[in-house]
């Protein structure tokens, strides 16, 4: 291998490695995933890198999962999914903020006119990577209101789903603790936030019933979605 600067951006061998490592931007990640279905050579590169890097896990000791995990998994299998994963093969896995985010970029149009503001400036699909929890959001700058629409999914008993708005480089700000059973909610965003929506992300965490006790997310992140300018 010469050490010259011969590696162009177009080199699929490197692109495949960066894809497997999760080093690509969400857009480039999607670009690779879109090609995988029809490009056997790229698919082979990806597979070879997966075999190479998986050796990093060789020394990791096995840990037997707790016994309650298996019943929980079989319970989940019986929950119907509303959409098939959209991507090809392992691409289905995406990478967040690189991944959960990339999944959100595959924007699915609102199919309900009920909640949609007349002319939203931003929309988001806030989804778990496997679509086990999905909400949609639309923000109307004229009214300062963020409309949230439940699509699918649930949460553990004794917990609440809490929405967070994360402006670029800022700490999460609580948007709403979702009332159980509600299909749609509208929230007025503080005016200091409405100017920072470009590049912002909506996220949903699972919190103790009633919401985070600290004002910051404390539980697992269940779903993420970037706000997309319309």
């Amino acid at each position: 291998m010469s050490d010259e600067d011969t590696i162009g951006d177009g080199d699929d061998r490197i692109l495949a490695a960066e894809y497997v490592l999760g080093l690509l931007s969400p857009a480039d990640m999607r670009g690779v995933e879109d090609r995988l279905g029809g490009d056997a050579a790229l698919r082979s590169e990806v597979a070879q890198w997966q075999e190479t890097f998986v050796t990093f896990t060789d020394p990791i000791p096995e840990v037997t999962p707790p016994e309650h995990l298996w019943p929980a998994i079989t319970r989940d299998l019986d929950t119907p999914v509303t959409t098939r994963p959209r991507r090809f093969g392992l691409g289905v896995l995406g990478y967040a903020l690189g991944g959960v985010l990339a999944a959100g970029l595959a924007w699915v149009a609102f199919d309900s006119g009920v909640m949609r503001p007349a002319a939203p400036e931003y929309q988001a699909r806030i989804a778990a990577e496997d679509d086990s929890l999905v909400f949609e959001a639309a923000f109307d700058a004229d009214t300062g209101q963020l409309a949230l629409q439940y699509r699918t999914g649930g949460h553990a008993p004794g917990t609440s789903l809490e929405f967070w708005l994360i402006a670029e480089g800022q700490a999460p700000v609580s948007v709403i603790v979702w009332p159980d059973g509600s299909q749609a909610e509208t929230v007025e965003l503080p005016s200091d936030l409405t100017g920072q929506l470009t590049g912002a992300v909506l996220a949903i965490s699972e919190e103790p019933a009633g919401g985070s006790p600290t004002g910051q997310p404390t539980g697992p992140v269940r779903a993420v979605g970037p706000l997309q300018g319309v």
Partner: peptide, 29 residues
């Protein structure tokens, strides 16, 4: 369709999913 060994396929799913969660956690916290 993936073209890897079965354990590589399984571990890759696990690794990618865990990394997704880790990055989401970092983005949140």
């Amino acid at each position: 369709a993936g073209g890897t060994s079965p354990m590589t396929w399984l571990i890759t799913i696990a690794r990618n999913h865990a990394i997704d969660r880790l990055r989401a956690r970092r983005a949140m916290g």
